[in-house]
């Protein structure tokens, strides 16, 4: 699809921002989301092409405003619901209960 991900040759994106001694993961959740690629892949929930296409289907503004591992998280939330592994209601309830437990 002719999505925002297809960036080759676009202009005015600004300077390339580099970070010295960048850690592999900036937040603990990034590592968890990284690992879930492998666990979900091993379960057969998606292949790499489906994974990439789920990122491409993000809205362009959201794609640009969210970080790399948020794209991955978006894939799981999208594909696992589409494939009937989880329901959106289940996910919403779990987030609510985790938030309550954390208060």
């Amino acid at each position: 699809m002719n999505g925002i991900h297809d960036m080759g040759g676009m202009q005015c994106m600004g300077p390339i921002v580099r970070e010295e001694n960048e850690p592999r993961f900036h937040e603990e959740w990034e590592g968890r989301v990284f690992g879930m690629f492998f666990t979900n892949f091993a379960e057969g929930h998606f292949n790499v092409d489906m994974f990439r296409h789920a990122i491409e289907r993000m809205g362009p503004a959201e794609y640009l405003e969210t970080s790399y591992y948020e794209h991955w998280l978006h894939v799981y939330e999208t594909v696992l619901v589409e494939r009937g592994i989880l329901t959106q209601a289940e996910i919403d309830e779990k987030i609510a209960s985790l938030r309550q437990a954390g208060d």
């Binding site: 699809m1 002719n2 297809d6 080759g8 040759g9 489906m50 990439r52 296409h53 491409e56």
Partner: peptide
């Protein structure tokens, strides 16, 4: 090609 589905052929090519 301009499919709505997945492709790895970038527009600039």
């Amino acid at each position: 090609i301009n499919p709505l589905s997945h492709t790895r052929l970038p527009r600039y090519i």
